[in-house]
Design a protein around this nucleic acid. Structure first.
Lengths: 105, 105
DNA sequence: TCCCTATTTCGACATTTATCGAAGAAAGCC
DNA sequence: GGCTTTCTTCGATAAATGTCGAAATAGGGA
């Protein structure tokens, strides 16, 4: 994970609509959700949703799988883990953060 | 931490220049860095740097302290901790993520 | 008081983004 | 082959963003 990649993933999550999409997918669990299901829950135009989903897929945070005409979307946890790891490394270059981490766990 | 706040912090970090600023501050450790020191290291116009710093400070990721005419900037670790915690909660609503977390540590 | 250094604010500009509705494409069913 | 359902692409538009240089401001020092 380098700065550029982290930045792109953070930017992808740094939009309220996209974060809501991601959050909804996480809550859907392993089963995932079709694009239409996301649209019902979130209530935006299908074209807008498709646009946001494309960005999440491009950054690797979401995966898609076809089932006939429906596209199942799933949160891709390894990408999130790597992102969290990168942020933790950034943060924990300083002792103060290590201490606060220890206190939190 | 709610979705809106997390989204604003993620957006703040989701710009390569701002992530580089934050990274530089983390590496500077507890001593922090004056705005001018950041400018030397990053090499952008002072006005642009000021603009980005304002956003980082507004979201709570960076703090500033005056020493005469110089402004010392520091990464504010508790904010990053809270953000990481939020992302981990998002991610770990599913068992697969808990497993991958355990494997990573 | 006048100046000096450090930083911010002010325009200005090009680029990117978010959003929508309408039209198009993919994948199957009658 | 037509029809349906699901999703994406296209075209358009308003708003936000990133960037710069020049001017203004803040805080002390001679």
């Amino acid at each position: 994970m380098n700065l550029e990649q982290a930045s792109r993933q953070l930017e992808a999550l740094g939009n309220p609509t996209r974060l809501q999409i991601y959050r909804t997918l996480v809550r859907a669990g392993h089963a995932g959700l079709p694009v239409g299901g996301l649209q019902e829950r979130i209530g935006i135009a299908a074209s807008t949703l498709s646009h946001h989903l494309k960005r999440l897929v491009d950054t690797g945070l979401v995966t898609q799988e076809r089932h006939a005409t429906t596209l199942i979307c799933r949160a891709h946890y390894p990408a999130m883990d790597a992102l969290i790891g990168y942020l933790a490394d950034e943060c924990c270059a300083d002792a103060a953060c290590v201490a606060s981490e220890a206190a939190a766990s």
